[in-house]
Amino acid sequence: MSQGLNYEFLIDTFFVALSGISITLLVTVISLIIALPLGFLLAITRINRIPVIQRIAQIYVSFVRGTPIIIQIFIIYSSIPLILKAFFDKYNIQLDIYKINPIWYALIIFSFSTTALLIEVFRSALGTVKKEQLEAAYSVGLTTFQAYRRIIIQQVLVVALPNLCTTTVNLIKATSLGYAMSLPEITLNAKVAANMGYNYVEAYLDIFIIYLILCMAVEYIFKVLEKRLSKYKMANA
């Protein structure tokens, strides 16, 4: 007999799924912390045409952009243990590679793919900051590092923020693929709960709501940030 939604399960599972939010956020935040500076530096190599590195960055970007994340996950999740195993065997390290927490794989994959996306975000943002800003900084006695820290990065961030928001939201959603490597984030938690009583609709509804709220919150934070950082652009004459 067909029934309506199992509300009790819906509510219980909401909290089960919600308990995965810490893993989702952890993977998102750490991936961003790794990818932001790395993407920025590689974007600079692209802008300044630094010979070998910019070419590598270019190939790296098209590699990541040209493949689905789920495939990147499959490749890294299945190949890294083999490489590690060979390495450990060779040097006689007693470590069970199958006991490595999947969060490490998740961090590798998501920082790897986010870095590539951010190279492009920062590359276009860097293009909007005129080189005269750097020259002016030099002329008042700032070093290149100081000029970037005090002048260039602040201007780049304002331009990049809308795209950074998109990248962050996409990253949050992409971490849901972590279930493929048993990462106990929001999606996996809900799916495991659903498996027991086949209450998939309720579980998916929970996930849906959690991601929606999470992404809306992130978008709101970015909006506030953008407003604050770009006050020098909106000033009234």
């Binding site: 005269e132 800003q133 020259e135 002016a136 008042v140 304002v158 020098y232």
Partner: peptide
């Protein structure tokens, strides 16, 4: 010190 043709003030300051 240098004064530029196009002023080149730091736009974010």
């Amino acid at each position: 010190a240098f004064v530029f043709q196009n002023y080149n003030l730091f736009t974010n300051k």
